[in-house]
Amino acid sequence: MIPETLLGQPFVLGHTFNGLYFAALLFFASVGLTLVFGILNLLNMAHAAFYGLGAYVAVWTLNNIGDITTSVAALLVVLVLVIPLVVFVLAAALDKSVFAPLYDIEPVYQLLATFGVILMLDDIIKYIWGGTPISVAAATNPSRQLGTVDVLGASISMYRSFVILIAVCCAVGLYLMFVKTKIGKISQAMSEDYEMVQMLGINVTRVRVLIFSLSIAIAALGGALFVPFAVATPAVTLEYVLLSFAVIVIGGLGSLKGVIVASLIIGMVRSFGIAYVPAIELAIVFALMVVVIIVKPEGLFGDQGVVE
């Protein structure tokens, strides 16, 4: 029994919008996971943990650097540029140290070793920020300051629109990088034949560090953009680890297009699921994942290259 108001146009519009917003967050959390697997052959279970890290760093930064007088533009620049940049540098260091030995081992062991990384990161976050949920103070919360607009009766958050916009820019940016730049073309070649690229005398380690760090930075960007509308908790990490795996499996491991499409599917499923069938909303996501692995294990676009 669905109340009539739930079928109204503003309602559907509102949920479609929320679905896009979820999709944007899922895209941030999973795109790097699929790229690192497709190009570098590393299945990094801890990938989405950096989404969680991004969320914590963002809460801390917004609450400590700004006050009520800080402009919204400055807050957004911190979220979109400063935090990802910092995490990029951190990820580069981690790639050279913690992750370096993982590239040569079997995927199954990669999965287990990076599960260990999740556990470690979990406690590092607890050590720095404590185990209780933290959130962005109202004074420096861009989502509050940007407010909402009414579109056809639905109240649309300006901040969420901004997040969706950034996700679109990010997807287009990645596509252009793979198609237009030399690094992107080398990456594509690596996804097809890693050893051959190595033999051509190309410094694959440099490309590897770049792709890995960029991937992690995008995950952190997602976490940073997520947190003005939510709270940062240790559970966020685990939730997004699972969801990001659902996304990349459904889309097809290693496919940029797959991540985009699967993020949209899961985003919409969650948004409308929460509205109509809240009890099994998450179950639908996993059921979808099950069906895809059984029926089409390569995913929707997994048998194609990174950008085809």
């Binding site: 913690v98 030995p101 993982l102 081992i105 062991y109 287990l112 070793a113 599960f115 260990g116 990384v117 999740i118 556990l119 470690m120 990161l121 979990d122 406690d123 590092i124 607890k126 050590y127």
Partner: peptide, 20 residues
């Protein structure tokens, strides 16, 4: 320590890389 996750994660990581 209350941070036993870190210890466990480190052990798992090292075991995977060394003893397999």
């Amino acid at each position: 320590t209350e941070y036993w996750h870190f210890t466990m994660g480190l052990v798992l990581f090292v075991v995977v890389l060394t003893l397999r």
